[in-house]
């Protein structure tokens, strides 16, 4: 069931002003939303904060009401063996078939001793990426698992 292999990441537009990031965290905290993983991409003017939370829909709604510009993006969570080459191997497989990884970042916590890494690929290759990785026996976490981490 590929559908639940797609994880909803919450993306937030932030200006490069001090305190914005703290405000996001505080707002989420006030609504009992836990941040599971995060990454920030930034330019000199603004940044995009990407979050994995335990309840993405609620997080998006809460942040929007607080006045943030918020969206949701589909990503995949992979379980990567925690040894050198673990990540490389996965990336090679994707590159071999021309799938571009737009960005990726890791979870705080481990799962069964392995690292959990979130990958973003274009929406139109999401399904085929999942299929490819399953055939290569790369463990993909289900959405529920991710939210519950």
């Amino acid at each position: 069931m590929a559908a639940t292999r797609i994880v909803q990441q919450v993306s937030i537009f932030l200006e490069n002003k001090s305190g914005r990031l703290a405000e996001v965290c505080t707002t989420l905290g006030a609504h009992d939303i836990n941040i599971r993983a995060l990454c920030i991409a930034d330019t000199s003017d603004f940044g995009i904060l990407r979050l994995i939370v335990n309840d993405p829909a609620k997080a998006a709604s809460v942040l929007q009401q607080a006045g943030f510009s918020v969206g949701q993006t589909s990503v995949i969570a992979l379980q990567i063996p925690d040894r050198p080459g673990g990540l490389g191997g996965v990336l090679e497989k994707l590159e071999a078939v021309g799938i571009n990884v737009e960005y990726m970042y890791a979870f705080f916590v481990r799962r069964e001793g392995d690292a959990v890494v979130l990958f973003r690929v274009a929406d139109d290759v999401l399904e085929s990426t999942i299929r490819l990785l399953q055939e290569a026996n790369v463990p993909i976490l289900s959405a529920e698992d991710v939210y519950a981490l």
Partner: peptide
């Protein structure tokens, strides 16, 4: 101002 519901997830998209 970016619209509250509309934006791109990538820096490239926003730029």
């Amino acid at each position: 101002e970016l619209a509250p519901q509309f934006f791109s997830d990538t820096i490239r998209g926003l730029e």
